[in-house]
Amino acid sequence: MRRLRITHLTEYRYSSPVTLGPHQLLLRPREGHDVHIESSRLDISPQPQIKWHRDMFDNSVAVAIFVDSSDRLSIESEVVIEHYEEAPLDFLVADYAVNYPFLYTPEERFDLLPYEQPVYPNDQPALREWVSGFGFGQGPIETYAMLDRMNRALAGGLTYIIREEPGVQSPDQTLASRRGSCRDYAALFIEACRHLGLASRFVSGYLHAPATEEGNAATHAWAEVYLPGPGWKGFDPTIGEVTGSRHIAVAVARHPETVPPVAGTFVGPRESPPPVLIVNVQVVAL
């Protein structure tokens, strides 16, 4: 078991007081047999009313509703978790899905269909060309081996960059530029899997690494693929690994752009400059 403390600060500094609209926060890790939340704290200034709910993907969502105007918005989350996923490769794929290509059962397909639909339909030619370079269509191949090859190919074939601007690059953009953020790597991997007929989804969360111990880090993103037998399995194409106890999932979604950690609105003077954004993430082993 691994104990981790995740501290996540998001701060907006405005040039003058603004009226803050509702803000949606996706900061609480997803709990299950592999992750247990030991303690959590959420400090927000100015103080809002907070309402919690679970969305359609079973993510824990906090909605902050503000009354007071302010020239600064500070959101700090601290969570201590126990992570039990110490052997991520210890799984068995169902017999009918050990080798690719395979078909999901009718029961699986009914629920998985949305995760098989492309988010970037215009990028299918570029994806087809990239996937064809692996020669997957030349005969049966072990499903996990195929996914592992694509995962490692992205980690080794693209240049990682930190992109401050919001949003996600399309797979076509990432393949053309050969560079991207973790969000872009994940979106490309997901769309490649969907192109191959495999249900896949986007995951937003945190990664424990030497850099995150020091702070001044950011959130992380990766992909999950539904494999009959083990279910949703995480693949991190930024580092070419199957996800384990270093990865802490916070939110999952079909579309890569729908689960930012903090999303909201404000109203201020028309000619005001954009707010200054400060983000600091620290993931520490305890």
Rank of each mutant, 00 (worst) to 15 (best):
E191G: 03
A126V: 12
R3W: 05
N99K: 13
S60T: 09
G264N: 10
Q282E: 00
P121Q: 12
N216L: 07
G139V: 11
E224A: 07
A253L: 06
A94G: 06
F189H: 11
G135K: 08
V283A: 00
S170A: 01
F134K: 13
T105V: 04
L147T: 14
F189R: 00
S132F: 01
S60H: 04
L103M: 07
A223V: 09
D123V: 02
Y226Q: 11
G244F: 06
L20F: 00
Q282K: 01
G156M: 08
D236T: 10
L127D: 04
V119K: 11
R270A: 14
D43I: 11
P171A: 06
I50K: 07
F189D: 01
E86F: 04
E257A: 13
S132Q: 15
S40C: 01
A221R: 06
L154F: 01
L277Q: 10
V63M: 03
V79H: 03
S204A: 08
Q24I: 04
F91L: 00
H23L: 01
S69C: 05
P29C: 03
G215R: 06
V119H: 03
E213P: 01
A223F: 08
Q49R: 15
C182Q: 08
P237N: 05
Q49L: 12
Y12R: 13
A176V: 11
C182L: 07
